[in-house]
Design a protein around this nucleic acid. Structure first.
Length: 217
DNA sequence: AACGCATGCAACCGCGGAGAT
DNA sequence: CATCTCCGCGGTTGCATGCGT
C-alpha cells in the first residue's frame, strides 16, 4: 500500500479564509515549520485540507511575499520568460522572489495578454499576429481592437463597408488595409510605437517595451 | 439609486510526476 | 515492480468590487 490519503474531504471547510483561520495557520507554521501538509490542518486545528492550507500559505500568508502591483520591469521580465518557458508559471515565478505563480498567472491572464494583443503580438507564440496563419485569432484580435480600442475607427470602417458597391466581395482587402494601418500612433499620437520598433529591430529587443505601460494604461 | 456588465483575484479542481510502501 | 498517495502545477471558476448606464 502507498501513503495515507491527504484528507477525507468530509466536513472540511471551503471558500474564503477567515482572519482566525489565517492566524491559526500562520502561528502553526511559524512555530513548527512545514513537515507534511497533510498534517498541518489537524495539528493547527483547521477544518481545511492540506492542499488548501498549502495554497493559502504560499499565495497569501508567507512572510516573504512582496505586496503590491507588479512593476513594469517585472512585467517585461514575465513576457521575456514566458516567451522562453511558456505557461510554466512556477518556473517564471522562481525568477521573482516574493511573487507567487498564481499572482503571475493572474497578471498574465488579466493584463499582459491584452497588452500583447493590443500590440499585435500573439500571447501564445510571441509572434506578430500577421505571421500566424490563423484567421480565427486574427479575427478575434481585430474585433477586440475595433470594438474596444478604436470605436471611432470602427465607425469609419463600417461606413466604408456600407458605401462599398460590392457588398459580397467585401472588403477583405479593405479590412486588411485597415488592420495594417493600425499603429499605436493612431491611438496615442506622439507616443513611440515599441511594436513597430520591435518588428524593425534585427535583434528583437524587449527593452523597447519599457515604460510603455504609462503611455496607455 | 439601482441595475447589469466587466474585471481582477483568491481559491478550487484535476492531473502528472515523485516517492513511499 | 506494482500500487497507491502526496505534492506541486496549470487551468478554471466564482465572488467581490468597480464602473457605466
Amino acid at each position: 500500500m502507498g501513503r495515507q490519503p491527504c484528507c477525507d474531504k468530509i466536513g472540511l471547510k471551503r471558500g474564503p479564509w477567515t482572519i482566525e483561520e489565517d492566524h491559526r495557520l500562520m502561528n502553526f507554521i511559524l512555530n513548527n515549520g512545514i513537515q507534511c501538509w497533510r498534517l498541518v490542518p489537524k495539528l493547527a486545528g483547521l477544518m481545511r485540507c492540506g492542499k488548501s492550507c498549502r495554497l493559502r500559505w504560499i499565495n497569501y500568508l508567507r512572510p516573504d511575499l512582496k505586496r503590491g502591483a507588479l512593476t513594469e520591469a517585472e512585467e517585461d521580465m514575465i513576457i521575456k520568460l514566458h516567451s522562453q518557458l511558456g505557461n510554466r508559471w512556477s518556473k517564471i515565478a522562481g525568477h521573482f522572489p516574493g511573487r507567487t505563480d498564481n499572482e503571475i498567472k493572474n497578471h498574465w491572464n488579466t493584463r499582459i495578454k491584452k497588452k500583447l494583443k493590443f500590440l499585435g503580438i500573439d500571447p501564445l507564440t510571441h509572434k506578430p499576429i500577421e505571421e500566424i496563419n490563423n484567421d480565427d485569432i486574427k479575427q478575434q484580435v481585430s474585433e477586440e481592437i475595433n470594438e474596444k480600442v478604436m470605436p471611432e475607427k470602427t465607425l469609419e470602417y463600417t461606413q466604408e463597408q456600407q458605401n462599398s458597391t460590392s457588398s459580397s466581395s467585401i472588403n477583405e482587402s479593405n479590412l486588411e488595409m485597415f488592420q495594417n494601418s493600425l499603429t499605436l500612433d493612431m491611438y496615442y499620437p506622439g507616443v513611440e510605437d515599441p511594436f513597430q520598433n520591435w518588428i524593425a529591430s534585427p535583434i528583437h529587443n524587449w527593452d523597447l517595451f519599457d515604460n510603455l505601460q504609462d503611455n496607455f494604461l
